[in-house]
Design a protein around this nucleic acid. Structure first.
Length: 181
DNA sequence: GCTGAGATATTCT
DNA sequence: GAATATCTCAGCG
Protein backbone atom coordinates (compact mmCIF):
# COMPACT_ATOMS: atom_id res chain seq x y z
CA UNK A 1 0.00 0.00 0.00
CA UNK A 2 1.17 3.50 -0.75
CA UNK A 3 2.41 5.75 2.02
CA UNK A 4 0.67 9.01 1.22
CA UNK A 5 2.54 10.89 3.92
CA UNK A 6 5.62 10.72 1.65
CA UNK A 7 6.47 13.63 -0.64
CA UNK A 8 4.45 13.98 -3.85
CA UNK A 9 7.38 13.13 -6.12
CA UNK A 10 7.82 9.87 -4.20
CA UNK A 11 4.14 8.95 -4.33
CA UNK A 12 3.62 9.89 -8.01
CA UNK A 13 5.45 6.93 -9.63
CA UNK A 14 3.74 4.53 -7.25
CA UNK A 15 0.35 5.65 -8.53
CA UNK A 16 1.12 4.63 -12.11
CA UNK A 17 -0.67 1.42 -13.08
CA UNK A 18 -3.03 1.55 -10.11
CA UNK A 19 -6.78 1.47 -10.59
CA UNK A 20 -8.75 4.45 -9.34
CA UNK A 21 -12.52 4.17 -8.91
CA UNK A 22 -14.80 7.18 -8.54
CA UNK A 23 -18.51 7.72 -9.17
CA UNK A 24 -18.96 4.46 -11.03
CA UNK A 25 -15.96 4.69 -13.35
CA UNK A 26 -12.58 2.98 -12.92
CA UNK A 27 -9.37 4.02 -14.64
CA UNK A 28 -5.87 2.65 -14.72
CA UNK A 29 -3.60 5.62 -14.07
CA UNK A 30 -1.10 6.22 -16.87
CA UNK A 31 0.11 9.79 -16.23
CA UNK A 32 0.50 12.01 -13.15
CA UNK A 33 2.29 15.16 -12.09
CA UNK A 34 3.71 15.98 -8.67
CA UNK A 35 3.18 19.38 -7.08
CA UNK A 36 5.29 20.15 -4.05
CA UNK A 37 4.54 22.33 -1.08
CA UNK A 38 7.44 24.74 -0.78
CA UNK A 39 9.83 25.92 -3.45
CA UNK A 40 7.53 24.85 -6.26
CA UNK A 41 6.19 28.01 -7.88
CA UNK A 42 3.78 26.09 -10.09
CA UNK A 43 1.94 24.59 -7.15
CA UNK A 44 -1.37 26.06 -6.06
CA UNK A 45 -0.12 25.97 -2.49
CA UNK A 46 2.97 28.08 -3.19
CA UNK A 47 1.26 31.31 -2.11
CA UNK A 48 -0.17 29.87 1.03
CA UNK A 49 -3.53 28.49 2.06
CA UNK A 50 -6.72 29.79 0.42
CA UNK A 51 -10.30 28.54 0.40
CA UNK A 52 -9.72 26.88 -2.95
CA UNK A 53 -6.66 24.83 -2.06
CA UNK A 54 -7.65 24.04 1.54
CA UNK A 55 -8.13 20.36 0.70
CA UNK A 56 -4.51 20.10 -0.39
CA UNK A 57 -3.44 20.99 3.14
CA UNK A 58 -5.75 18.37 4.58
CA UNK A 59 -5.08 14.70 5.36
CA UNK A 60 -3.17 12.78 2.64
CA UNK A 61 -4.81 10.16 0.45
CA UNK A 62 -7.82 12.41 -0.10
CA UNK A 63 -9.07 14.23 -3.16
CA UNK A 64 -8.34 17.83 -4.11
CA UNK A 65 -10.60 19.07 -6.94
CA UNK A 66 -10.38 22.55 -8.42
CA UNK A 67 -11.72 24.39 -11.44
CA UNK A 68 -9.18 25.14 -14.15
CA UNK A 69 -9.69 27.99 -16.61
CA UNK A 70 -13.20 28.22 -15.23
CA UNK A 71 -14.16 25.19 -17.28
CA UNK A 72 -12.37 21.99 -16.35
CA UNK A 73 -12.39 20.02 -13.13
CA UNK A 74 -8.97 18.71 -12.34
CA UNK A 75 -8.36 16.12 -9.64
CA UNK A 76 -5.36 15.67 -7.39
CA UNK A 77 -4.47 13.14 -4.74
CA UNK A 78 -3.22 14.87 -1.60
CA UNK A 79 0.26 13.83 -0.43
CA UNK A 80 2.64 14.53 2.47
CA UNK A 81 1.59 15.03 6.12
CA UNK A 82 -1.43 17.21 6.87
CA UNK A 83 -0.58 20.90 6.60
CA UNK A 84 2.21 20.48 4.03
CA UNK A 85 0.22 21.15 0.87
CA UNK A 86 1.46 18.65 -1.70
CA UNK A 87 -0.42 16.63 -4.27
CA UNK A 88 -0.39 14.55 -7.46
CA UNK A 89 -2.40 15.79 -10.43
CA UNK A 90 -4.16 13.01 -12.34
CA UNK A 91 -3.30 13.74 -15.96
CA UNK A 92 -4.46 10.63 -17.82
CA UNK A 93 -5.76 7.11 -17.47
CA UNK A 94 -7.33 4.19 -19.30
CA UNK A 95 -10.99 3.52 -18.55
CA UNK A 96 -11.38 -0.13 -17.57
CA UNK A 97 -14.77 -0.12 -15.87
CA UNK A 98 -17.93 1.96 -16.19
CA UNK A 99 -17.11 2.54 -19.85
CA UNK A 100 -20.72 3.31 -20.80
CA UNK A 101 -20.91 5.95 -18.10
CA UNK A 102 -17.62 7.45 -19.21
CA UNK A 103 -18.84 7.74 -22.81
CA UNK A 104 -22.04 9.28 -21.51
CA UNK A 105 -20.11 12.00 -19.70
CA UNK A 106 -17.49 12.56 -22.41
CA UNK A 107 -19.62 12.24 -25.52
CA UNK A 108 -18.57 10.43 -28.68
CA UNK A 109 -14.80 10.12 -28.88
CA UNK A 110 -11.98 7.66 -29.44
CA UNK A 111 -11.67 5.14 -26.64
CA UNK A 112 -8.17 6.19 -25.69
CA UNK A 113 -9.33 9.82 -25.46
CA UNK A 114 -11.90 9.10 -22.74
CA UNK A 115 -9.55 10.06 -19.91
CA UNK A 116 -6.69 11.60 -21.86
CA UNK A 117 -5.76 14.94 -20.33
CA UNK A 118 -6.46 16.27 -16.82
CA UNK A 119 -9.77 17.96 -17.62
CA UNK A 120 -11.01 14.83 -19.35
CA UNK A 121 -10.05 12.63 -16.43
CA UNK A 122 -12.17 14.84 -14.20
CA UNK A 123 -15.05 14.69 -16.63
CA UNK A 124 -14.94 10.92 -17.13
CA UNK A 125 -14.78 10.31 -13.38
CA UNK A 126 -17.43 12.91 -12.66
CA UNK A 127 -15.35 15.06 -10.33
CA UNK A 128 -17.07 18.01 -8.69
CA UNK A 129 -16.12 20.61 -6.10
CA UNK A 130 -18.10 18.66 -3.52
CA UNK A 131 -15.64 15.80 -3.89
CA UNK A 132 -12.96 17.84 -2.14
CA UNK A 133 -11.61 15.93 0.85
CA UNK A 134 -13.32 12.65 0.02
CA UNK A 135 -11.15 9.53 0.32
CA UNK A 136 -9.61 8.09 -2.83
CA UNK A 137 -10.45 4.51 -3.83
CA UNK A 138 -7.32 2.80 -5.14
CA UNK A 139 -6.73 -0.86 -5.88
CA UNK A 140 -3.37 -2.48 -5.33
CA UNK A 141 -1.38 -3.22 -8.46
CA UNK A 142 0.26 -6.57 -8.92
CA UNK A 143 3.61 -5.23 -10.07
CA UNK A 144 5.22 -1.90 -10.80
CA UNK A 145 4.90 -0.94 -14.48
CA UNK A 146 7.72 0.63 -16.44
CA UNK A 147 7.66 4.40 -16.13
CA UNK A 148 9.70 7.48 -16.94
CA UNK A 149 9.85 11.02 -15.60
CA UNK A 150 10.24 14.35 -17.36
CA UNK A 151 9.24 18.03 -17.37
CA UNK A 152 5.68 19.05 -16.62
CA UNK A 153 3.18 20.34 -19.14
CA UNK A 154 0.67 23.16 -19.39
CA UNK A 155 2.14 25.36 -16.70
CA UNK A 156 4.00 28.65 -16.87
CA UNK A 157 6.31 28.39 -13.88
CA UNK A 158 9.07 26.07 -12.79
CA UNK A 159 8.76 24.05 -15.98
CA UNK A 160 12.22 22.60 -15.70
CA UNK A 161 11.47 20.49 -12.66
CA UNK A 162 11.12 16.86 -13.79
CA UNK A 163 7.96 16.12 -11.86
CA UNK A 164 5.79 14.50 -14.52
CA UNK A 165 5.59 10.72 -14.48
CA UNK A 166 4.02 8.54 -17.14
CA UNK A 167 3.95 5.09 -18.71
CA UNK A 168 5.80 5.33 -22.03
CA UNK A 169 4.10 4.50 -25.34
CA UNK A 170 0.67 4.29 -23.72
CA UNK A 171 -2.09 5.47 -26.05
CA UNK A 172 -3.92 7.24 -23.26
CA UNK A 173 -1.02 9.49 -22.25
CA UNK A 174 -1.44 13.05 -23.45
CA UNK A 175 1.08 13.96 -26.10
CA UNK A 176 1.37 17.69 -25.99
CA UNK A 177 2.75 19.95 -28.71
CA UNK A 178 5.84 18.35 -30.13
CA UNK A 179 7.10 16.96 -26.87
CA UNK A 180 9.04 13.70 -26.61
CA UNK A 181 7.04 10.52 -26.39
C1' DG B 1 -0.31 16.38 -37.10
C1' DC B 2 -0.35 21.58 -35.51
C1' DT B 3 -2.36 26.20 -34.48
C1' DG B 4 -5.55 29.67 -32.54
C1' DA B 5 -9.21 31.00 -29.77
C1' DG B 6 -12.36 30.50 -26.03
C1' DA B 7 -14.17 29.77 -21.42
C1' DT B 8 -14.89 31.73 -16.12
C1' DA B 9 -13.52 30.84 -10.97
C1' DT B 10 -10.19 32.54 -8.02
C1' DT B 11 -6.71 35.55 -6.58
C1' DC B 12 -4.10 39.81 -6.55
C1' DT B 13 -3.66 45.00 -6.65
C1' DG C 1 -11.41 45.92 -11.37
C1' DA C 2 -7.59 43.16 -13.82
C1' DA C 3 -4.80 39.23 -14.49
C1' DT C 4 -4.03 34.59 -14.26
C1' DA C 5 -4.90 29.78 -14.65
C1' DT C 6 -2.07 22.20 -13.16
C1' DC C 7 -6.80 23.37 -20.86
C1' DT C 8 -9.69 21.70 -24.62
C1' DC C 9 -11.60 21.75 -28.76
C1' DA C 10 -12.52 22.87 -33.75
C1' DG C 11 -10.55 23.74 -37.84
C1' DC C 12 -7.10 23.31 -41.10
C1' DG C 13 -3.13 20.61 -43.67
Amino acid sequence: MIDFTASADIVAPQLLGMVLTHNGVSIRITEVEAYLGSGDEASHTFNGRTPRNAAMFGPPGRLYVYVSYGIHRNGNIVCAPEGTGEGCLLRAGEVIDGIDLAYQRRGDTEFHNLARGPGNVGKALGFSIEDNGTPVLLSDREREPEWVRGPRIGISKNQDAALRFWIPFDKTVSRRRGLPR
